[in-house]
Design a protein around this nucleic acid. Sequence first.
DNA 1: TATCAATCTAGACTATGGTCTAATAGTGTT
DNA 2: AACACTATTAGACCATAGTCTAGATTGATA
Lengths: 210, 210
Amino acid sequence: MAKFLIADDHPLFREALQGALANHFSELTLREAEDLDSTLAALNKDDDVDLLLLDLHMPGSGDLYGLIRVREDYPLLPVAIISGSEDSSIVAKCIGFGALGFIPKSLPSAEIAEAIDTILQGETWVPKETRERLDVISDEDQELARKVAELTPQQYRVLHFLHEGLLNKQIAYQLGITEATVKAHITAIFRKLGVYSRTQAVLVAERLQL
Amino acid sequence: MAKFLIADDHPLFREALQGALANHFSELTLREAEDLDSTLAALNKDDDVDLLLLDLHMPGSGDLYGLIRVREDYPLLPVAIISGSEDSSIVAKCIGFGALGFIPKSLPSAEIAEAIDTILQGETWVPKETRERLDVISDEDQELARKVAELTPQQYRVLHFLHEGLLNKQIAYQLGITEATVKAHITAIFRKLGVYSRTQAVLVAERLQL
DNA sequence: TATCAATCTAGACTATGGTCTAATAGTGTT
DNA sequence: AACACTATTAGACCATAGTCTAGATTGATA
């Protein structure tokens, strides 16, 4: 009797995936989440989830942040990334940051089930094209990822805009808060990342390809 | 009767290369340069150089800047990069920015001569390991490289330190000039790169892996 | 030599960035 | 309910970044 959590912001895709899984796993309990907050909430509620199927691009998530965050809070939970893209450098990053598998949405449902079987047995699974191209993530980058995981969602959003090259004034407008508040968040980001200027914070974000 | 220009800051290596070339090219005129300034000066003086053998790491050059600069000033001149490293992403960048060849220093002299023959015939030559891994450089990156080529050497040095995450005060100390001067250079860099903040300038540098 | 153009330099001034302190609101714990 | 803890917010204050103007130097050209 397996219990999965599907985290994806497209209801239609969740349904489709659910259908595909139902054909291959007889006894199956499914939970659903549509953004990072509800994913973390669901994991907190159900402590016996066997596998998280996590979409990369989710509201409030921002590519790698969701994975980094989940890995920080639930290091033992098997995570399979579900993604529309299958860029090999992204695949490598995900595996490097602790995902057990990377499943492109374009895969036929039979192969998706196979991949999940592999992952449930504790082995990694990635698309054929990207096998043997899995760069190792350096210790420094692992350390940086650990630091990024300490950021709150709002702080992460601010870091994201920093990385876009926006001024504090522009970030304040985007988030609907005052410039003073943006500055306060930035100071907190510096502390957590161990840097002392916005330039260095941007370089950290760039290095992790957030 | 071929005329080459060897640009490398190690006199010993220049000699060795000279010896290797003498065995394979009967009629050969060689010019030498030891940094970016003397390279540009030599090219300006001799307008009939057939090939530039350019070391990547040269004083005042800073990895890709030397190549970008030479390509901007002498777009028709065949350039072969000579380098100690043979990291495939660097090779790809060099070819993308217009070098006709990439020759690792570790190559036996017979193969170096072969490579140069290939390049003189107008074909590209790269190490076996990196063939068929030559990513295309995007139009945007070409455009950025064109802009970087407009920077003066001093401005390039400042951009380099910006990219390291240094404060203006620290850059001033490193270059032995006042903070006010650093700021003036930074303003000039913004104009030439078409950005309006230090963060964006750093992102340009990061994107070109300068 | 005279002159033009470009670079490097730097001071004065303004805008933006960053720190410190602190109030508010939410969350989980005893 | 009272408690400690943390995220979010923001004002006051100081530091750093960036603009404008301009003098000094160099190299090419008439």
